[in-house]
Structure formats: structure tokens, C-alpha cells
Design a protein around this nucleic acid. Structure first.
Lengths: 95, 95
DNA sequence: CAATAGCGCAACTCGGAGGTTGCACATGAG
DNA sequence: CTCATGTGCAACCTCCGAGTTGCGCTATTG
């Protein structure tokens, strides 16, 4: 189906996926296997998360030999910034 | 669980819920029964959507006699604006 | 070439989300 | 008081999302 906004929000709704975005933002690039070391789940689960992020247009992949490296797209970088802004916005209005 | 960001994104991921936000933004206030006329689903389904929006802090309710009127919270209004911005941002970068 | 590291695909489980139906309860109108 | 209107609650169904395991294929490396 074609619901770009829904796909993006759906992708961002998952904490693990937001963490992946954070890691990619910090490291610039990573493989599914590398990210597995940072998350309490299997490589296949991480790969699925990366696939949904890719479907949402937040991440793109490029295969280099036998490894597939992922990095944030421009949209993904924008959302990483917005997430930071939203988080501080939340903690600021915290009661 | 306490994942405010996740709740908000999860709430915004559903098209029907974004429509509800749009209606509330346009009309200022509405009841679940009124909104049912605008959406292809039953009143109870609409009520559930309103409940999730309320859990996410985007909507608040006030019971007036036998009817319960809903309106956007401040956060809900902010998100309604952001949604407009994001939509035009999307159509602008459309290729 | 043999062995290993890295991925991708497929099948399975499990819980929660979206939606429906049915009913019970309160409240305003006549 | 009676009745229709507006809600809320609960049970149920179906489907998708998150995660796992298992296997097979590709590409490095020694």
C-alpha cells in the first residue's frame, strides 16, 4: 500500500529501530551483524528492522563484497535530528 | 511501559487516527458518534482510536452530560501542524 | 580447493492492534 | 415515568509485527 507517512511513523514507533537510527547516526555506517552486538536480539531480527527502515526510506544499503553496509538516507538523518529535538522537548515539558 | 515517543509515533502511524486529528483540528471538538459519520467503521472502533490518541497525549476528553467531547491537546495541535509540514515536505521532494 | 564468515530466505510461535457484535448503564427529552 | 440517545465494557475474530530457528548460498581467506 502507499502510505509514506504511515510507514515512517510505523518505523519510528519501535524503540529498537530508533536505537538503530541512533547507532547509524553515530557510526555513519554498519552491517546487520555489527548492530546485533548492540541489541538484545538475533541478526535476522536486526535485518528485519533494517528492512522496514529501508522500506520507510530512512536507511539505504550497499553490498560490498560479502557484507551489506547500511547508512542513513537524507530523510533518516533529518528524522534523527527531529528525534533529538522531540526528546529534549519532552523532557523539558516533563512534570 | 513508558515509551512516550513510541506511543506518539504508534498513534500517528494509523491513517484513521491521523484523519481524526485532522477532523478535530478543523472542528475544534467532536464526539465519537459524530466522528463515526466521517470514518468507515463503527463507533466503538472510533472510540478505541480516540483512546489510543488520549494515551499518547494528543487528545483529551471532557464529559458533558451524556456526551463526551474530544479535542486536541497542545501536543496534538503541534503534531497536526507538523503533519501538514511533513506532507508538503513529502510532495515537494516527490520524484 | 577447503573452510569459514556474512547474508538471505522460509517457516514457525506469540502477542497485540484494528475491528466487530452484543449488552448494560446513564442521562436528557417528551 | 418512559423511552430514545450516547457511552462504556467485554468477548471475540483476524491479521500483522516482532522475534526465533534452521538451512542454503555467496564470497573471502588460508
Amino acid at each position: 500500500m502507499s502510505d509514506p507517512l504511515g510507514q515512517v511513523f510505523g518505523a519510528l514507533a519501535d524503540p529498537s529501530r530508533r536505537q538503530v537510527i541512533g547507532y547509524l547516526s553515530a557510526r555513519g555506517t554498519a552491517t546487520a551483524t555489527e548492530l546485533t552486538g548492540e541489541l538484545p536480539m538475533t541478526r535476522q531480527a536486526v535485518a528485519k528492522h533494517l528492512a522496514t527502515l529501508a522500506d520507510a526510506g530512512l536507511v539505504e544499503s550497499e553490498r560490498h563484497g560479502r557484507e551489506t553496509r547500511f547508512r542513513l538516507t537524507e530523510a533518516g538523518t533529518e528524522w534523527d535530528d527531529r528525534l533529538d529535538a522531540l526528546r529534549s522537548h519532552l523532557t523539558r515539558h516533563r512534570r
